[in-house]
């Protein structure tokens, strides 16, 4: 019997993995991949709750649809920005873009 906790733990682990990726990656594109992972973890969470606890309204599913939509939009836009930065600075590594320094 697959319980709700199965899915929740899976989503938690996925989220932590994405978190790790965001923190340690240098390349903006890799960071983006990690963010996608985090979003996917949240989607699982939403859908699991919707399926187990909210079978009538399944609001979580609707939310997951929106999450996927926004994730797609985000990837499109963020990659545009990455391209732009790359053209300006010849690198897509975020730790080399340090003009905010003291």
């Amino acid at each position: 019997m697959i319980s709700l906790t199965h899915y929740l733990v899976l989503s938690g682990v996925l989220f932590a993995l994405g978190f790790y990726g965001v923190l340690v990656r240098r390349s903006a594109i890799l960071i983006l991949i990690a963010v996608e992972l985090m979003l996917a973890a949240v989607s699982i969470n939403f859908v699991a709750f919707a399926s187990y606890l909210d079978a009538k309204l399944f609001t979580g599913v609707i939310f997951a649809i929106f999450v996927i939509t926004i994730a797609a939009a985000e990837v499109g836009l963020a990659l545009g920005i990455v391209l732009r930065i790359y053209r300006e600075r010849s690198t897509a590594n975020v730790d080399e873009a340090s003009t905010l320094k003291w």
């Binding site: 923190l23 003009t99 905010l100 003291w102």
Partner: peptide
């Protein structure tokens, strides 16, 4: 002021 490295990963880590 040296805490302000200007590197976004550092900020992200602090936020995390």
């Amino acid at each position: 002021k040296f805490l302000q490295t200007g590197r976004i990963p550092n900020y992200a880590l602090a936020m995390a």
